[in-house]
Simulated scan of single mutants.
Amino acid sequence: MAAQGIAEAMQAYTGLSPAAAVTILVLMLATYLLVSSLFVAPDAASSAPAKPPQERKEEQQQGEEETEAFVPYPDPVQLGEITLERLAAYDGKDPAKPILIAIRGQVYDVSRGRLFYGPQGPYSLFAGRDATRALALMSFDPIDLTGDLEGLGPDDLEVLQDWEDKFKERYPTVGHLASENAADGNNSGV
């Protein structure tokens, strides 16, 4: 009685007869086992000679020390006001420095996106620069790497707002660009 209920539920859920559903399940399992055996050799682990307990303990402690020392993304450093000239030094070429990008005067630490914004990344052109206009126009032209919004239409500004929202959501704000007047007058940037 219960088996018949299961068979009816299986047919209603999958649209297949119980025999077809079980056959497909068995084939999927066999395929999984075949493919996974290509990547993991079950005999490899058992054929390795066992290490003495003291040596295993030392390796484990060493592994823990290495794990503790590894910090993938350090906390972002607040830079405050920064000039365009100083921003250029944060282009990802120096692995000890964060990767920064400015949008509408706000400076974001995009180090977490190093694959995208780092030296070999598809968006490396934006690193260490004010990418406001380029993002609004979805342009990779170096001429557009500026904060100038003059001549942009409502659609361009909407695209820019979408980019800005994405950056605010994903990356920490670490400072703001110094205004050109302040930079020219007293060079007060970081």
Rank of each mutant, 00 (worst) to 15 (best):
G15C: 01
L16Y: 10
S17D: 15
A21C: 08
V26M: 13
V26K: 08
L27G: 07
A30Q: 06
Y32G: 07
L34D: 06
V35W: 05
V35C: 07
S36E: 08
S37N: 07
L38I: 04
A41N: 12
A41W: 09
P42R: 04
P42W: 01
A44P: 01
A44E: 13
A45P: 00
A48K: 12
P49I: 06
A50W: 11
A50G: 09
P52V: 12
P52T: 12
P52C: 06
Q54E: 15
R56N: 10
K57N: 09
E59S: 12
Q62S: 11
G63P: 05
E64M: 10
E66Q: 12
T67L: 13
T67V: 10
P72Y: 04
P72L: 04
L79F: 08
E81V: 15
E81Y: 07
I82V: 15
I82T: 11
T83F: 03
L84G: 09
E85T: 12
E85L: 06
R86L: 11
A88L: 09
A88K: 09
A89D: 12
Y90W: 08
Y90F: 15
D91Y: 01
D91L: 03
K93N: 12
P95C: 05
A96C: 06
K97N: 10
L100V: 01
L100G: 02
I103Y: 01
I103W: 00
